[in-house]
Structures are given as C-alpha cells and as structure tokens.
Design a protein around this nucleic acid. Sequence first.
DNA 1: AAGCCAGTCAACCGCAGGGGT
DNA 2: GACCCCTGCGGTTGACTGGCT
Length: 270
Amino acid sequence: MGRAPCCDRAAVKRGPWSPEEDDALRDYMQRHGNTGSWITLPSKAGLKRCGKSCRLRWLNYLRPDIRHGGFTEEEDTIIYSLYSQLGSKWSLIASQLERRTDNDVKNHWNTKLKKRLAAAAAAFSTAPCRRSPSFMPLPAPAPAHAHLSPLLPLPVPTVKAEAYTYDDFLAPTAGLQDPFAAEGSSSASAALQDTFAAEGSSSASAALQDTLAAEGSTSASAASSGSNWSAVDNAGGFFVDFCAAGPDLAAADQFLGGFYYPLDSTLSLV
DNA sequence: AAGCCAGTCAACCGCAGGGGT
DNA sequence: GACCCCTGCGGTTGACTGGCT
C-alpha cells in the first residue's frame, strides 16, 4: 500500500502550464505571497492544479528573481567542484549560485556538464597523463607549471572538515601505469620526477611552491617538507594534477586527474 | 516533405524529514 | 513517542524542438 496522493488526480489539471494559469499564479503570489500552505493555494488562486505543481511552477519558473540558461564558465566550474564533493545535492549546489534553481542546475548537469566530464575522462584515460589537459574545462589562465594550475579565487564553500581520501575524488588510476611505461618511465612516480626535473623543479612539492610563489601567495606552506601533501593549507583551493600517496613523492604510484579541491585546512591523501 | 533521432527542459512522482499536535 | 500533514528534494518522464537523412 503506497502513500495516498497529495491531491485528487482526476480533479486537477496536469502537464504544461498555460499563460492564463501562469498569470493567475503570478498574480496571486504578487498580491498575497504564499502565506498559507501550498496545498490550499490552488483553490485560493482559482487554479485547478495540485499544490505541489503550483509550488514547482513558482519556484522554478515564475519567481522573478531567477535566471534561466546561459550558464557561465565560472558557474560550470563551481558546479563541477561542488558535485565532486557533494554529489547530486542540487539544492545545495544551486544555493551557491546566484539566482539559480536546483532544477536548472540539475538539468544543466545532466544535459551538458556530465557529458563534457565523461568526454574529458575518456580522453584522459587514453592519453599519457603528462600531456593530458586539465580534467575539467576551466576558465583559468595558463598555469606557470604544466601540472599545477594557479589558485582560483572561487567562492566555493568548504563542506568537509576531515581529511580527504582517494575515495572522495574520482580516481582514474586504472590503466594509468601503461601510459607511463609507454613513455619510458617505469612508474607514475618516475614520470613525475622526470617531468619536474625537466621543468627545473626537484619535486612536485617544489613545483607547487614555485607556482604559489609566482602567485604571490604566502599562505601555502604546501608540502614544504617536500614529502607530503597533507601539510597543504590555503584559502580557496587549487588544482592538483599529480597527487602522491604515501609519505614521499618518490613513492607515488597513484595518480589523480586534475580536480579543483577546495581546502579548509588540510588535504590529506591517504 | 516526411520520418527519425538526440538534446533540452518543464513537470511529475515518490520519498525523506521536519514540525505540529 | 506516535501520528499526521506539509514541504523540499532528487530521480525520472515526456513533450517539444531542431538537425539530419
């Protein structure tokens, strides 16, 4: 036995809203607001609609303070970032975007961003990592280093206080060893060392420090020990194209695609 | 011109959870 | 604490549209 429907389906109209219905709902909301309940609103507004339908129509479409479509690159970046942390918490994600509805964000993700991410992931999994582009399309300027993008001053809230683990991120580790070997490096760590050495940095941590210094940042004591990412602290976050597992980058045989990680105090890859 | 197909997005459905009694 | 009502949320559906054959 399921839950009883919230309204008599035979007595209410369903499907697309007519301009007349929109006018009636808009007029009612502008004159009275929704001071009562959504359930009783339809009869008061003279609508043969379910209360839930009225609520949805108002919140997602008729409300004057919302925008439709035309998502900017910056909004896309924020959505990617928040989705990587929160999953499909669309209302939470939408709340971080000015004048966007959860339904709009969800549709945008399902119709555009998800496909773009899948395409990027496919390209990423087949190309040698040192040549792969950022895992996500970004409006960021060209990074000082090939593997470490500059800080992005995005208004991304921190939602997780404890240490991060590999499981918190998409970790396309499978099949990555072969590309390294194909390029003449014995492992991911070797490839890292090769690449950083070629760029004049002794290690990934040094490269990160170089990048942060170039950005004029003083907050990043990032991996200052030269051995671990867990010491990273800054405000805002940054891209990590290479992440080491374990106490030393030399032992890094794991790899993560470039994601924007908003950091509160620590990023600990365990 | 007609049919097919993929993409988009408004709308629906059912569940979870909060608040009141 | 138990129950009921209502709201909010996320997954899904289906109508519509434009491009392609």
